[in-house]
């Protein structure tokens, strides 16, 4: 391992230890599983669908991640500000980027584990029918991308404040906006107001790109959309951390 990878891994490891040494990560994962499965089976009517797919599950994922990702990511930098450990971390012989990427990776691992633990639903539909597992796989990729995009957004907010509650609430509202701007009702409302506006805005929505991906059409533009939002957010985090010190 070169020194960059080693430093990032050190940070990731420590963050994961922090997550799992308190009940926070466990509670969040359990709540996520209850919500995602509950919605899919009860409201989504996963079992009543005539075709075997996880569409009912994926339908609610962005809405659940809208709450879940800010809850996972709210402590990333707020905690450093609150404890004063930022001063320790930023005087270590590492680049701030190592810390930014390392923390983001650790939180992404939580999202990854959460999605992985939904496998019983996947087993169920494979047992009951004959789903297109390619589409299921694409759905999981889309879900993961939405989750970590919301994490990156939360990271920016938590770099701004020492209060976890504030960073949670503000991040939640921003994530909500990123979903709503692609919601059909709002898109048509905007289109009525100024022709074509809704369509343009929805291109910036997480929901639009997510829906494309979950259809099983893995288009590189959708993936690039998510990755560039993440990249931009991490960059913004770096800028905020730097200006906060100056």
């Amino acid at each position: 391992m070169n020194s960059t990878a080693r430093h990032i891994w050190t940070i990731t490891k420590k963050e994961l230890r922090s997550y799992f040494s308190t009940p926070l990560a466990w509670v969040l994962i359990v709540v996520f599983l209850l919500l995602s499965q509950g919605f899919a089976f009860m409201f989504g009517g996963l079992l009543e669908y005539q075709n075997a797919s996880l569409a009912a599950f994926f339908l609610y994922i962005p809405w659940i991640f809208m709450v879940f990702a800010p809850a996972v990511g709210m402590r990333l930098w707020s905690e450093e500000h609150r404890l004063g450990t930022m001063e320790l971390l930023m005087t270590m012989p590492i680049s701030p980027w190592h810390a930014i990427v390392g923390k983001f990776l650790a939180a992404s691992v939580i999202i990854f584990i959460s999605l992985l633990l939904t496998f019983p639903a996947w087993i169920t539909i494979n047992w009951l029918g004959d789903p297109d597992n390619g589409i299921v796989f694409a759905g999981y990729i889309a879900a993961f991308l939405v989750g970590i995009t919301f994490l990156a957004v939360t990271g920016v907010i938590s770099a701004l404040t020492r209060s976890m509650v504030v960073s949670f609430i503000v991040a939640l509202f921003i994530c909500m906006g990123m979903i709503m701007s692609g919601w059909p009702n709002i898109v048509s409302e905007l289109d009525n107001w100024i022709g074509g506006l809704g369509q343009k805005v929805s291109q910036l929505s997480v929901l639009t790109h997510y829906n494309e991906l979950t259809k099983g059409i893995v288009v590189s533009t959708d993936i690039i959309f998510f990755l560039s939002v993440i990249g931009f957010c991490l960059y913004l985090t770096a800028v905020i951390l730097k200006t906060k010190r100056a």
Binding site: K14, R17, S18, S21, T22, L83, T85, E87, L88, T91
Partner: peptide, 12 residues
């Protein structure tokens, strides 16, 4: 460096 107030990561 020993910063003022000796900050530490409380969960470790």
């Amino acid at each position: 460096y020993l910063p003022e107030n000796a900050p530490l990561y409380s969960e470790l």
